[in-house]
Design a protein around this nucleic acid. Sequence first.
DNA 1: CTAAGTGCAAAGCATTTGCAGGCTT
DNA 2: AAGCCTGCAAATGCTTTGCACTTAG
Lengths: 151, 151
Amino acid sequence: MRGWCRDFQRSCRAAGIRVTAQRLAVYEALAADGAHPTADALYTRLARVMPGLSRTTVYRVLDSLERRGLIRRVSSTAGVARFDARPEAHQHLVCRVCGAIVDVSLPTFRRLGVPRGPLPRFVAEHVEVQVVGRCAACHGQDAGGDPGTGT
Amino acid sequence: MRGWCRDFQRSCRAAGIRVTAQRLAVYEALAADGAHPTADALYTRLARVMPGLSRTTVYRVLDSLERRGLIRRVSSTAGVARFDARPEAHQHLVCRVCGAIVDVSLPTFRRLGVPRGPLPRFVAEHVEVQVVGRCAACHGQDAGGDPGTGT
DNA sequence: CTAAGTGCAAAGCATTTGCAGGCTT
DNA sequence: AAGCCTGCAAATGCTTTGCACTTAG
């Protein structure tokens, strides 16, 4: 219940960025949320406990952490950015209607790493696997609506 | 050089949507472009040959085709929507800096289909595999800039 | 004929940027 | 002390919506 904090501070120093209350807060909130929150979701949650926090800062913090590889921006079919602090390899179920993202661990993909073959002028960093479809709430529609909350 | 047209018309009828000049044009332009163009890129290209075409229409056409499954919205880490008309299974190299998407065919993933295991209240439609990293133009930066054009 | 599709202009959100302080190092 | 970070407000950029007209079926 305290380890992540020291680890995170170490990571920040190693990455050459300063340890600020905002970075700590955003990282903790993200790590505690398994639903791949959006920047705005994190802001809303944090603003309650950290008045004065700016939405801009949340965006900037997420951006800087992603640049140093401390968190990931998960790719999605919806237009809003979603983030992930979980380092372990896992796959995503993404609903093409409401954009919800759920973690899964599919044995078939579990041990597939970054392909070692010659990639055309490209530096591979990691592989993302997404099962695209429709979640329970969105089953029935073809797409376009927003029946689920996506959380 | 004419087959796609009749096939597309048939698909539209089967999907219950009308065959219009705009739909034909957008679909043809998308199918002819291997770079996973954005809605705006398609609009710009088409506006030259089809004056009066509206950007709104391009968005709406892409949306309706995606809803019926005639094309796909490819998931990406960047904020702009990119589309794909290629039905064959393939994987994507996505640059996390400039958002460029390149097709690849990785033997390891080639024959991996939608997992048949019990997915938690989810209707799986297809699987997407992305190798995230940095393209040649963006190598050197950590992220954030826009050195490449992404096309 | 009639409902789906289109164009235009304006609105809507998510995200970014400029600038003046504030706080980590 | 120096410069990275933050907050605020305004700007940007992609995408959607309202409305009246057009056109495929």
